[in-house]
């Protein structure tokens, strides 16, 4: 490693070594940390190191987007979910119900790395002529090159991406929504959300209460996931537990 890096200027080599160390140590931290919150913070370190590596390769826009989107949005979403669910307790790494699985996992991971390294020596890029523009230019900034390519050559893919985002948002809303079909034994089924039902008004507050003590009654006897909630016939007395234990559609 030293002789190959000796030809490189000292700032370049230092920046590469430091950012590579940040990346790899952060990644090891994600895998080995028992606490998911610390794992997410190690993930931030890794993403920051990858952004540094992008910056070294003159991908300025991607380095900025990496920090903004990954570090600013995705990791925050992770932390939000971890803390919302209250699963930030330490996972026991020592005791594994399938102990051989961990050994096999490490062996398979090392095989993956070895295979990639071997393939990197066998198959190399062919260097085909570019169809989408150069990556670096003395006069044009990186972001202009990227935008020109994105809005001309890859315009269709860009439009499809916007559709993908809309679909993801709709899917997330559908997943997060509680299926609240009202099965009113005294009258016709209304199908309205429960907070619209004056008879059970206020029950919706209980569903969104993050207090773990009050969440314990939500799972009722919905253990059989084969049943859809809107098909369950429930007695009136335990109506709220069944109607609120929905798992989306």
């Amino acid at each position: 490693m030293i002789p190959m890096l000796a030809k490189v200027s000292v700032p370049d080599a230092t920046m590469f070594v430091v950012s590579a160390a940040i990346v790899l140590l952060g990644a090891i931290g994600v895998v080995l940390n028992r606490n998911p919150v610390r794992g997410a913070l190690c993930l931030v370190a890794t993403l920051f190191g990858v952004a540094l590596l992008f910056l070294e390769q003159r991908a300025d826009f991607l380095a900025a987007v990496q920090i903004i989107v990954y570090g600013g949005a995705i990791v925050v979403l992770f932390l939000f979910v971890i803390m919302l669910l209250g699963v930030d307790k330490s996972e026991r790494l020592g005791r594994d119900p399938l102990s051989w699985q961990r050994f096999l996992g490490i062996v398979a991971g090392c095989l993956v790395v070895g295979a990639i390294l071997v393939l990197a020596h066998i198959a190399w890029a062919t260097g085909t002529k570019s169809v989408s523009g150069v990556a670096s230019s003395k006069t044009v900034p990186n972001i202009n090159l990227l935008a020109t390519s994105l809005f001309t050559t890859y315009l269709l893919a860009f439009e499809v991406t916007s559709a993908l985002l809309v679909i993801a948002v709709v899917g997330a809303v559908l997943l997060a929504r509680r299926r609240t079909v009202v099965i009113d034994l005294d009258g016709p089924s209304t199908g309205l959300p429960r907070d619209d039902d004056p008879e059970h008004g206020g029950g919706y507050q209980d569903q969104t209460n993050p207090d773990p003590d009050s969440r314990g009654d939500l799972d009722g006897d919905n253990g059989d996931r084969g049943d859809r909630d809107d098909l369950v016939q429930v007695p009136e007395g335990i109506f709220e537990e069944h109607a609120s234990g929905g798992h989306g559609s």
Binding site: A59, A125, G127, V134, N142, S149, T161, L164, L165
Partner: peptide, 24 residues
């Protein structure tokens, strides 16, 4: 960078978008 082709960075851009959607 090696091939001096912007397409690689465009692909990374799309991967970022797909990763965000996937995480959501």
């Amino acid at each position: 960078r090696t091939l001096n082709d912007i397409a690689g960075q465009v692909v990374v851009f799309f991967v970022l978008v797909v990763a965000a959607a996937e995480v959501v």
